[in-house]
């Protein structure tokens, strides 16, 4: 076990996969500098800098994966995937079905996501709901270093497309790179428990589609992922003092959703609160409600999500994103009704 930052854990997994399998390559904007340690070890053929042309290089990632490589394509920030949406929506996600299951796309799309550092609504989105809406693609969102490493290994080993999202409040270099963490005059609400952690060397695979109960409880189930898990754990501590014992579940994978753990937890506590940094409408939180309804689970339901465009001003942003005040408020409301 090594103590690693979230970002180090991801790159350790990627480095391991690249050392084990020559077909694993990585490319995207600025990867020569962003992944300079991999660049030094593996060189420009395997760590390639791409022009700012998301539609071209993500589309090329699909083709390269179909032709036998295992590319890890970086879309710097997940917001920029909009530029390359065809590659995912109409190409990568369709190949397996269109080919009658005879051809698959072992592609990993790696991107940073999430807000909380004042960059505004074009650079801080999560979009995992949007991306999960298409069949044929898995979407994973780790919340701690061992999961980050384990899910990256899983994603590379997967024979089908996987979107791997790293939250910028967890991957410290993003805050340094984008948010000016070099300034002593600004601070960010980074969950300490998550930004560093013990990681096995080599990392242990975390299966895609497996959620995890982080803290058991009896009064309600808080389902979340990414930074939301840590906001939920903080809220759990506050709720305990106020007489409520919340179970916190880290979904880890958006799709395929771990229906078993979600329904078990809901049946146990009888109340479900989804804490989702992504948009409220037509996404993960609604999907959880639908899955519970389809499984015949009778339970209370509430959600704390992002309900508007993410504002630039920090005080507006803090209110727009799920925070402990909103989570505890929703939990009390849910348990009183």
């Amino acid at each position: 076990m090594h103590e690693m930052t979230f970002a180090e854990a991801i790159d350790a997994a990627l480095e391991r996969a690249m050392a084990d399998d020559e077909r694993v390559i990585t490319f995207g904007e600025d990867v020569t500098m962003l992944r300079r340690n991999l660049y030094v070890r593996f060189g420009p053929r395997r760590v390639r800098q791409a022009p700012i042309s998301e539609s071209a290089f993500l589309g090329a990632g699909v083709g390269a994966a179909m032709a036998g490589l295992r590319p890890v394509v970086e879309i710097m920030l997940v917001d920029f995937i909009a530029v390359a949406f065809d590659a995912l929506l109409n190409e990568a996600s369709k190949v397996k079905a269109f080919s009658g299951g005879k051809w698959n796309v072992p592609l990993v799309v790696r991107a940073a996501c999430g807000g909380g550092y004042g960059d505004g609504g074009q650079h801080e989105q999560c979009l995992w709901g949007l991306l999960s809406g298409m069949p044929g693609i898995a979407v994973v969102v780790p919340s701690n270093p061992p999961d980050a490493a384990g899910l990256m290994l899983s994603a590379i080993q997967s024979d089908d497309p996987v979107v791997f999202l790293e939250h910028k409040l967890l991957s410290d270099y993003w805050l340094d790179y984008l948010g000016g963490a070099s300034r002593k005059s600004v601070s960010f609400d980074v969950p300490d428990s998550a930004a560093r952690g013990k990681v096995d060397v080599p990392p242990v695979v975390v299966q895609i589609g497996e959620a995890r109960v982080v803290s058991p409880g009896t009064d309600l189930s808080i389902l979340s992922l990414g930074v939301g898990v840590h906001r939920s754990l903080e809220a759990r501590e506050m709720l305990l003092k106020e007489g409520l014992n919340a179970e916190v579940v880290d979904l880890r994978t958006v799709t395929p959703l771990d229906i078993k753990i979600v329904t078990e937890s809901a049946k146990k506590t009888g109340r479900v609160l989804v804490v989702d940094e992504d948009y409220i409408g037509f996404g993960l939180s609604g999907e959880v409600a639908a899955v519970l309804g389809e499984a015949g689970v009778k339970c209370g339901f509430a959600r704390v999500c992002t309900e508007s465009v993410i504002p630039f001003a920090r005080h507006l942003e803090d209110e727009a994103l799920p925070n402990t005040r909103r989570i505890t408020g929703a939990a009390h409301h849910l348990c009183e009704s």
Binding site: D119, H123, P311, F312, A313, R314, H315, L316
Partner: peptide
């Protein structure tokens, strides 16, 4: 004021320097 995230800013504090 917009850069400072003030509601009296050009975009009410919603845009910031990139928007």
């Amino acid at each position: 004021l917009e850069m400072l995230g003030d509601e009296g800013g050009l975009c009410g504090g919603w845009g910031g320097h990139m928007h």
